[in-house]
């Protein structure tokens, strides 16, 4: 499956100016397609602050540095934990393939163990780094797996959006993504998904995603802050705030940056 780290955070894409004119006549499916295919930059380095808030309002903060590079239609990404101190240097290397039939490759490095391990993890419904986001949130959807419905058009914070419902066509997809239904709010001007609600496959939980800070950096719509709240009924049981900083695009990252050797070497 094709994963792109920032898309996952954004669910969103900037589009070429000319495309905006066609927006009126788009079907739900086309809108989602444009969202997924927007330019999300390449060759970038960024720092992410992950703030985890549990049901007792206890807060944990993790800082992660990410390097990312597109390889054809695939994507490669290497991430290192900066804090907390106990896990500093823990790294994950991911090769994300555009081909939906092909599983991602992932390696991890635990400095205290001093070993690189290939991880074979099955489904994408599992939590991303202990946050409320799961791996499928960070992965492009295989559109034929879903039925999309344009529910309505509305304005959020003065910007016109489409409200689109996505329902997986098979139980397999539900199991893989961990969601049985989603409602996504996509901005009409730039095809960035700024809100979403997901129905967790098992139990009664729902997850609420909201982009809190969206900026145009180097011509690319970039999510600087995004929240994901897991709720049971009206009550939040867990919440993640991701804050992205120091984003630099087009850094001319070399291929050898995305190797297990680099993982061992660390930052």
């Amino acid at each position: 499956m094709k994963t792109n780290f920032r898309i996952l955070l954004l669910f969103a894409a900037a589009i070429f100016a000319g495309n905006q004119l066609q927006a009126q006549a788009l079907t739900a499916r086309e809108i989602v397609e444009k969202m997924q295919n927007r330019d999300d930059g390449d060759n970038e380095i960024s720092d992410m602050e992950m703030i985890l808030i549990d049901k007792n309002k206890k807060i944990r903060v993790r800082k992660i540095r990410t390097f990312s590079k597109d390889k054809g239609r695939d994507n490669r990404r290497i991430m290192f934990f900066l804090t907390p101190a106990d896990v500093r240097g823990t790294g994950f290397l991911t090769y994300d393939y555009d081909d939906y039939g092909k599983n991602d490759d992932q390696w991890l490095y635990l400095p205290a163990l001093n070993k690189v391990k290939r991880i074979s993890a099955g489904d994408k419904s599992s939590s991303f780094m202990g946050s409320d986001f799961n791996y499928s949130d960070m992965t492009k959807k295989n559109l034929p797996d879903y039925d999309f419905t344009l529910m309505k058009e509305l304005e959020i914070n003065g910007v016109k959006v489409w409200q689109i419902q996505s329902v997986p066509k098979s139980r397999k997809v539900i199991k893989e993504t961990g969601y049985k239904k989603g409602v996504i709010f996509i901005r009409q001007d730039n095809f960035v998904a700024i809100r979403a609600i997901y129905w967790v496959a098992r139990g009664t939980r729902r997850k609420y995603m909201e982009v809190k800070d969206l900026q145009l950096i180097d011509g690319i719509w970039t999510v600087k802050e995004i929240h994901m709240t897991t709720k049971e009924g009206k009550r939040a049981v867990h919440k993640t705030i991701l804050k992205i900083s120091n984003i630099r695009y087009n850094q001319n990252l070399q291929d050898n940056m995305f190797t297990t050797r680099q993982l061992e070497k660390g930052l």
Partner: peptide, 20 residues
């Protein structure tokens, strides 16, 4: 494992491995 760092890292790995 005896080292505090390794304990922390193994737990982090576990958190990230998909099990809640």
């Amino acid at each position: 494992p005896e080292s505090r760092e390794l304990i922390a890292q193994e737990f982090l790995l576990f958190e990230n491995s998909g099990s809640d």
